[in-house]
Design a protein around this nucleic acid. Structure first.
Ligand code: FES
Ligand code: FES
Lengths: 141, 141
DNA sequence: ACATACCTGACTAAATTGGTCAAGTATAGT
DNA sequence: ACTATACTTGACCAATTTAGTCAGGTATGT
């Protein structure tokens, strides 16, 4: 079970954005430099974040990105959903009545993984960007 | 974030084992057939489970595997540890003082991922094989 | 005009996963 | 003693996923 860079970077970038977008739009180049993430990769990520209306883009010189909602309205769930970082614990198709390997019934561990998935998603639903900002400010004092 | 088959199969196989090892040792061939897992793959998994003393092996005809502890003493943590299914959320080396990409300080999301890791591990520490057995019996009634 | 910075799609090297295959060794039953 | 069963070990591999790079664009403020 591991987190992918896409999800990790998306959150890092958004925290960075949330800290600096009060004054001006923030360019991906700045985020790239501050957070040490490849610019080209960031562009892929932000195109997805934009599609899910988590950020807005402003083109041209002095352009960049801005959050399109307040930090407390952006949950980790929303971010992860946008960049396709999904939590997948079961092997079977959840909606289908069939089990893992095409068997007729769900396997002996199905309920367990389903519970795990819920457990993890609860965490993502609770945490918002705002929580992360607070945490970060505390660290800097 | 997804679970790998190794961890999933390990738990499936152990639940199967726990259900049938009261009378005789259970052969991997039986588990393979009942659970629909490749025999060769099961062998890899069980060699790891054995190394961590979760199961005992009995060779020869009528041989097989037996749990080496009671079901309520075998937590998911133990199983996952045995088969190297680890929860890895941070990118950096946890013990090191350095951050993700070799930076001097921990990144803005480090604490978050660390919290998540704890959150998930808590789940694994609580659940034992016995819990799964109960759940399964309930289903069969 | 021109620099900045968003936008898009194709491509790829490396790692991981989910196995298979081959060649053993130990033991119970006949 | 022979043989079938079943554990044991290690090498190998195809397919997928990941974590990017690269090469072009397009819009806009100055
Ligand atoms: S995980 Fe859903 S049936 Fe096995
Ligand atoms: S995850 Fe540990 S420093 Fe970024």
């Amino acid at each position: 079970m591991k987190l992918t860079s896409k999800g990790r970077y998306a959150v890092m970038a958004l925290v960075d954005l949330a800290r600096f977008d009060n004054i001006n739009p923030v360019s991906l180049r700045d985020i790239s430099l501050r957070q040490g993430i490849s610019l080209d990769y960031l562009e892929q990520i932000f195109s997805k974040l934009k599609k899910d209306q988590i950020v807005k883009s402003i083109r041209g010189t002095q352009g960049g990105y801005v959050l399109s909602k307040k930090p407390n309205e952006i949950k980790l769930t929303n971010i992860f959903h946008a960049v396709d970082e999904k939590v997948k614990t079961v092997q079977c198709k959840k909606e289908s009545k069939k089990g893992c390997n095409g068997k007729a019934t769900k396997c002996v561990t199905h309920n367990l993984w389903d519970e795990l998935e819920t457990h993890i998603n609860t965490f993502f639903e609770k945490k918002s960007l705002e929580d992360l900002l607070k945490n970060n400010i505390e660290q800097r004092t």
